[in-house]
């Protein structure tokens, strides 16, 4: 029952893309009148997940969407990569998995910041992470 109001697809190939994707997420959140806390939450989560795609899969893409349930607006980000997949999802979600370039808080932290969080991962196939952040009630 969620409508997609607008949709943008961005590639994640180089480090500078982190800033580009993050900026777009912030722009959508502000356009849809998320409060500063929710805006910071979605922007930061998008930043973490974009970096994850880059570091763990060497690249991928993200679809950023303005969404509505008829009552409120929100922002949704769906990350997709064709990397090695997350070997230990449970550990990654607990925030214990870290590499030189990530704190290991990327996945678990984004989950805590989002109103909705979904992750699908398959070894050798890739990973899809989807997060949503909505306007407050």
């Amino acid at each position: 029952m969620i409508d997609v109001v607008a949709q943008y697809r961005l590639e994640i190939q180089i480090e500078d893309d982190i800033v580009i994707v993050r900026r777009k997420a912030r722009q959508l959140a502000q356009a849809r009148k998320l409060d500063p806390f929710a805006t910071a939450a979605i922007t930061t989560a998008v930043s973490e997940l974009t970096r994850n795609v880059l570091v763990h899969a060497g690249g991928g893409s993200v679809v950023l969407e303005e969404i509505s349930d008829g009552e409120r607006y929100g922002v949704r980000a769906t990350f997709e990569d064709h990397g090695p997949g997350i070997a230990n999802l449970e550990l990654a979600l607990a925030g214990g998995h870290s590499t030189s370039k990530t704190m290991g808080l990327g996945l678990s932290g984004s989950k805590r910041l989002a109103d909705r969080f979904e992750v699908k991962t398959e070894k050798g196939v890739g990973t899809t992470v989807r997060i949503e952040k909505w306007q407050g009630l």
């Binding site: 806390f37 939450a41 704190m103 808080l105 678990s108 932290g109």
Partner: peptide
């Protein structure tokens, strides 16, 4: 540090 930045970092566990 801005309020929303502090809140976000803390919520992530940092």
């Amino acid at each position: 540090m801005r309020p929303e930045v502090a809140a976000t970092l803390v919520r992530m566990g940092y």
